[in-house]
Design a protein around this nucleic acid. Structure first.
Lengths: 133, 133
DNA sequence: TATCATGTACTAGTTTACTATAACACTAAT
DNA sequence: ATTAGTGTTATAGTAAACTAGTACATGATA
């Protein structure tokens, strides 16, 4: 019963249609975004996560690799995979521009579904207050 | 030389890695969003667009079908495809689910650029206060 | 050096996405 | 009824995505 408390608990939904490796990526990204995973924390090992999720180790590897390419995690052969401490070097102006571009695209997309900026803000606020799910 | 002025001019980029049918969808969505395509306007016929883009008719069909499923266009067998005037009927639950899906994807994407939920909320709030949208 | 826990690489099988060919079916105008 | 224009369906080939099985390589530590 006494299960060790994990930094992150990942769950795979085989019926969602979303690839396993992508579900892993999404949940880790979420955890980073909302602060559950902080700099330097070690992710579950490839094998242990593979066993937990009843998935092939290579599927975990694929997820971790993509995260590493994006610079979110650091991988050390023989040691483990850790949340990266280096943030991408960007000026504040660059950051602002990138965020603006992302948000505008998203607002546009949402608008085509009939959602307003207000809807989005409300959802995000609730989302954060719920402890990010 | 005197080419008839089209409501919309679609261009396919075969090198982009984005599926043809999706490129078509995106460009039509954009055109609707910024007012180039208004309610009731007829889209190019399946065949004519297929010829224009040098693409198979079924590729156009696929794009139009997806647009119809989303309620952006109306298709009438034997007549044509038109920009829809009705907004999609959705239950509140469906709306919530779709918004959740959209936002989660966006939060993930933003996280991979180092942005947090807080960053996004702040930007959106400022954005709205500036009267943009 | 030996060992154990870690990530990596090679290979292959299955499924899904994408596009195309060709024939069918509906609508409106003649 | 015929015809011309429209969307639709059935089928299939190719490529890519996805997952898995198995064996290998690296790093820390005793």
């Amino acid at each position: 019963m006494d299960k060790k408390k994990e930094a992150i608990h990942i769950v795979i939904d085989p019926t969602s249609g979303i690839p396993y490796y992508r579900q892993i990526i999404l949940q880790i990204e979420m955890a980073i975004a909302d602060g559950r995973l902080t700099v330097g924390r070690q992710l579950p090992t490839v094998r242990s996560l593979a066993v937990d999720l009843q998935v092939n180790p290579n599927t975990v590897v694929r997820a971790y690799n993509e995260l590493e390419i994006r610079g979110l995690v650091n991988t050390q052969h023989g040691t483990g995979t850790f949340i990266s401490d280096k943030r991408v070097e960007m000026s504040d102006v660059d950051r602002e521009q990138i965020l603006a571009q992302l948000v505008r695209g998203f607002v546009s997309q949402s608008a085509s579904y009939g959602f307003t900026v207000h809807d989005i803000i409300k959802y995000l606020t609730d989302y954060r207050e719920e402890g990010a799910l």
